[in-house]
Computed example of a mutant assay.
Amino acid sequence: MQTASTNICERMGRSQELSEFNRGTVIGCHLCNKSIHDISWLLNFPQSTVSGIITKWKQLGTTATQTL
């Protein structure tokens, strides 16, 4: 019997984006002084994704996706 996958990498694939809510949750955890490792573990997101969201937020002040 197979169970639903809980690994974000397996569910999303590389081309899908996190929702605005999920990106906001990452920033909320960051503002509560959680480490990238802790946020990654808590939310089951790759550390590179968490780091990228935080970096973008620090540089641009937003987590919104870029639209052309």
Rank of each mutant, 00 (worst) to 15 (best):
K56Y: 13
R14L: 08
I8W: 07
M12C: 06
T62F: 03
G61W: 08
M1W: 09
T62K: 04
N22W: 07
R14D: 06
H30K: 04
C9N: 14
E20Q: 01
L60P: 00
T65A: 00
E10M: 07
N44S: 09
V50A: 04
E10I: 06
V50S: 04
I39C: 01
D38F: 01
K58G: 01
A64K: 10
I54R: 02
D38R: 11
L68K: 14
T55D: 10
T49V: 15
E17V: 03
W57V: 07
L18W: 10
T49F: 09
L43Q: 13
I36E: 11
I54D: 00
M1S: 13
T49Y: 12
Q66F: 11
S19K: 08
S40D: 03
C32R: 15
C29W: 11
Q66T: 12
H30R: 06
I8L: 04
Q47G: 00
I39Y: 02
S19D: 07
S19H: 05
Q47K: 12
L18T: 09
G28T: 14
I27E: 04
F45R: 12
N7S: 08
T55F: 07
T65F: 00
I27M: 10
N7K: 11
F45Y: 15
T49W: 13
Q47S: 07
W41R: 15
G13Q: 05
V26E: 07
L43R: 15
K34G: 01
T63W: 12
Q16R: 14
T6D: 02
G28Q: 15
M12T: 03
G61M: 09
N33T: 11
E20D: 00
L18E: 08
I36N: 14
C29I: 01
T3S: 05
I36C: 11
H30D: 04
R23P: 03
N33Q: 14
I27G: 07
V26P: 06
I36A: 10
C9P: 01
N22G: 01
N7F: 02
I8H: 04
G61C: 06
T49R: 15
S19R: 10
Q47A: 06
N7A: 08
H37P: 01
G52A: 15
S35C: 02
R14T: 08
C9Y: 10
C32D: 15
W57P: 04
T25G: 00
D38M: 05
R14C: 03
E10R: 11
T49I: 15
L31C: 12
P46G: 01
T25Q: 09
T6K: 05
F21C: 04
G24H: 05
H30S: 07
G24Y: 03
S15G: 03
K34S: 13
S15T: 10
F21L: 13
